[in-house]
Design a protein around this nucleic acid. Structure first.
Length: 423
RNA sequence: GGAGAGGUGGCAGAGUGGUCGAAUGCGGCGGUCUUGAAAACCGUUGAGGGUUAAACCUCCGGGGGUUCGAAUCCCUCCCUCUCCGCCA
């Protein structure tokens, strides 16, 4: 969440920054400022009463010790009175602070000044495009037909055992999937990320820490019996490693990578563009996460999308890099790049990675700090990116590498697959 | 699922209802000593809020209660560990 201190000190700037997202936060911000001021005034009074109360208790203690029970009586009386007064004050401070907190939590992150203003995907900026459209042979098929033709992904079987959006990968389809995971993890390790395996369910605290809760509750599968959520991305468990952690400055940056399946309810997103692997309830993804010094986070953001581009290039997939406009970014992000891979048979771009700098939005919620040179604790910055999300990569590989003889496996994956053609 | 134990500062581990934010040990940091290091010794070392700086306030799993005063007593919830059962 945004730091209250920022709102307090620069309300105008916060409003201005949020306008990059196309939202008008003036009303919310002014409410926050007003209520915060009130809360602080009440808190000051409350604390001076508490100080008096503590002092009285000490004095009573002294008197009791030295046997002067009678002399303690008037002090006790005063203490009881203070307690009466305190009760109301405490309630008001608590409710005011809760209101302030809820308002602050409801605000999305303030975008970086380098983020283009805009409301929807149409205002995103294409930064670079790499490679070119593959020339497909006559009768080229979309990946869902290829999946059936070569019997490598069984959507119907998934429907039977679970439901729509839970495909079953079979044979070379399953092996291709495994090869990609292996390839991505190895690349990440080589780039200095610590590989981890994490739980696929998280508690509510973790969901809050990375920004999924309370706002995106409906996007996660929830198990009420145990009060746990299926992870929508490895970002959630991995970033929460650093909840309530104070790092030494010398430990930064902390780089972590993990493969997990991701579970998303995708409520209300059924339609023409969700066929095949385009949008699933369960999919595989390798994620990279970094906790960094605030001064370096924007450089790291550039490094991270460059790293992801490297993966796509090694796979030989035509892609483009987008700088998201304010309105198309997730609420926790200060700046996001998306990578979209070209889907040859569908003739459209598919998002396969999203790389974001959250600045202190997550670390503030997580209380993830580091000790700076002055020896004071300071919020770190967090970033993450998909490296990569598998289904759309699989879709692109199947479609773009198809030939009349079968689907050619990209060179770099052959050692992992153990075959070079799907036929 | 059954039975029991426990949740205190980075870790370990004390704590009689009354200067306890909390003994002690380890670790960390600074220093003395040393050519250097180790050892030894001395000092220092939780977080958040607040203040120019202090004062001061909050926090001993969460929430509620008793009391002038709660880490300590009561209620409640959560979590962890051990044993048994079941099981990959």
């Amino acid at each position: 969440m945004i730091q209250l201190q920022n709102i307090r000190q620069n309300p105008e700037e916060v409003i201005q920054r949020l306008s990059i997202r196309g939202i008008d936060a003036a009303e919310t911000v002014s409410q926050i400022v007003t209520k915060d001021k009130q809360a602080r005034e009440n808190r000051t009074r409350m604390e001076s009463l508490q100080a008096r109360s503590n002092q009285l208790a000490r004095e009573v203690g002294e008197l009791m010790k030295s046997g002067k029970r009678e002399e303690a009586e008037p002090l006790k009386q005063e203490s009881v009175q203070i307690k009466e007064e305190l009760k109301g004050l405490q309630d008001s401070v608590e409710s005011l602070e809760t209101e302030v907190r809820e308002l602050v939590v409801s605000l999305p992150n303030t975008p970086s000044t380098t983020v283009p203003t805009g409301k929807s995907a149409e205002d995103n900026v294409t930064v670079t495009t790499w490679g070119k459209e593959p020339e497909l042979h006559e009768g080229a098929l979309p990946h869902w037909d290829l999946a059936t033709k070569y019997d490598i992904i069984d959507f119907e079987l998934g429907v039977k055992i679970t439901g729509a959006g839970f495909p079953v990968y079979k044979g070379k389809g399953a092996k291709l999937q495994r090869a990609l995971i292996q390839f991505f993890l190895n690349e990440a390790s080589n780039a200095g990320y610590l590989e981890v395996q994490v739980p696929h369910m998280v508690n509510a605290d973790s969901g809050f820490g990375t920004g999924q809760l309370p706002d995106k509750e409906g996007q996660m599968y929830y198990m009420p019996l145990d009060d746990l959520y299926m992870i929508p991305t490895a970002e959630v468990p991995v970033t929460n490693f650093f909840r309530d952690v104070i790092l030494e400055e010398s430990q930064l940056p902390v780089k972590t990578t993990g493969y997990t399946p991701c579970f998303r309810r995708e409520a209300g997103s059924y339609g023409a563009h969700v066929r095949g692997l385009n949008r699933l309830h369960q999919f595989d993804k390798v994620e990279i996460v970094q906790i960094v010094h605030p001064e370096t986070s924007y450089q790291v953001l550039e490094d991270m999308h460059a790293y992801v581009q490297g993966l796509l290039q090694k796979l030989g997939l035509h892609y483009r890099l987008l700088l998201l406009c304010g309105g198309d970014m997730g609420m926790a992000s200060a700046k996001t790049y998306d990578l979209e891979v070209w889907s040859g048979a569908q003739q459209r771009w598919l998002e396969c990675s999203s790389v974001s700098n959250f600045e202190t939005f997550q670390t503030h919620r997580l209380k993830c700090r580091f000790r700076n040179k002055e020896g004071k604790t300071e919020l770190a910055h967090s970033l993450n990116g998909s490296a990569l999300a598998l289904p759309r990569i699989v879709a692109a590989i199947l479609e773009n590498y198809q030939t009349p003889e079968g689907i050619v496996v990209p060179e770099v994956l052959r050692p992992y697959c153990g075959f070079d053609l799907i036929n």
